[in-house]
Computed example of a mutant assay.
Amino acid sequence: MTDEHAAGGPVRNGVPEHGRVPRYYAVKVGLLELIGELGEGAALPTERELGERFAVSRATVRQAVSELVLEGRLIRRQGSGTYVAGPKLVQPLALVSYTEGLRDQGVRPGRTLISMERLAAAGEVAADLRLEPGEQVVHIERVLLADGERVGLESTYLVAARFPTLLDVFDPAESLYACLTERLGVEFAGARERVETVLATPREALLIGTNPALPMLLLHRVSWTLDGAPFERVRSLFRGDRLAFETQLG
């Protein structure tokens, strides 16, 4: 087995079987090695310096750097430069809250409230929660923070009839999961989750503070209690460059 086919990175290191590699990709591979040498938080050399280092045009360097920014390996700071990004945060696909998931990684969770209101259920919300159109739901929308950095946007719908005091007892700066289980006595029996990639709407991109062209991870979840009745529908949008999901099988 030759070195280029050794297991340890992307399959065959991303090299096509015909062996011809786009120039920008060769630069990208070289940048990944450089990122490993520089370490988290280090500034990347300028496009001119990288062009000289890899003997390519600045446009080629820019394409390679742009891909690494989209993948979360590099981060651009307006008016400052490009820096080596830290590792992605990992959110478990399990019945644990956003708060628990981050605290387990030594990261400080936080939230900024956008809206907390009663609405009439309609469309997919009504269908997922088995409500008649017009029945009331409590809607809570919050920007999700990790060590003060905006990383996502969460929109939660709960069956209002099951939680008549929720708006009175819930602190939007805290964990909704903790409020439901500890204050309102909810026992989660299960949930159905679906994850897909999307682009943020202009409103979502503004709230999260990200480029609308940046791929996002969208998580849909419907949760139910021991009686099998759904009570919660969650739509969570996360920055694909800062968050990854993980689950354990077995």
Rank of each mutant, 00 (worst) to 15 (best):
V61W: 00
E154G: 04
V138N: 10
A85I: 01
S66R: 15
Y98D: 07
K88P: 07
T60A: 03
V195G: 04
A94N: 12
L93H: 12
G81V: 05
V61I: 13
E71Y: 10
T82D: 11
L74V: 03
Q91M: 13
V125Q: 06
R111Y: 13
P164Y: 00
A189C: 13
V65I: 11
Q105I: 07
G81A: 09
E100M: 07
E193W: 07
T156W: 07
V138F: 06
E187M: 06
V195T: 13
T156A: 10
V186T: 12
E182V: 13
D171T: 11
V186I: 09
L95E: 07
G101N: 02
L153W: 01
S66T: 14
E182A: 12
E182G: 07
G123H: 04
R111D: 08
P92N: 07
L131S: 08
V138I: 14
E182T: 11
G148F: 04
A189P: 13
Y83P: 01
L184Q: 06
Y83N: 08
L68I: 12
E100Q: 12
S155L: 02
S80Y: 08
K88Y: 06
D128Q: 13
L74T: 05
D171E: 08
R130N: 14
M116K: 08
E182F: 00
F188D: 03
E67D: 15
R192Q: 14
D171N: 10
D171H: 05
E117M: 15
L119F: 14
R192P: 13
E174I: 01
P109I: 05
G152D: 01
S155P: 02
R142K: 13
V84G: 02
E100R: 08
A120H: 14
E135Q: 12
L176A: 04
G134K: 11
L184R: 12
L180F: 11
G148K: 03
I140G: 00
G110H: 01
F170E: 07
T99D: 15
G101W: 02
T112Y: 08
Q91N: 04
G190L: 08
L176F: 09
T99F: 09
R108E: 02
M116Y: 11
D168M: 15
L145R: 03
V159Q: 02
A120I: 13
T82W: 01
A191T: 05
L93R: 14
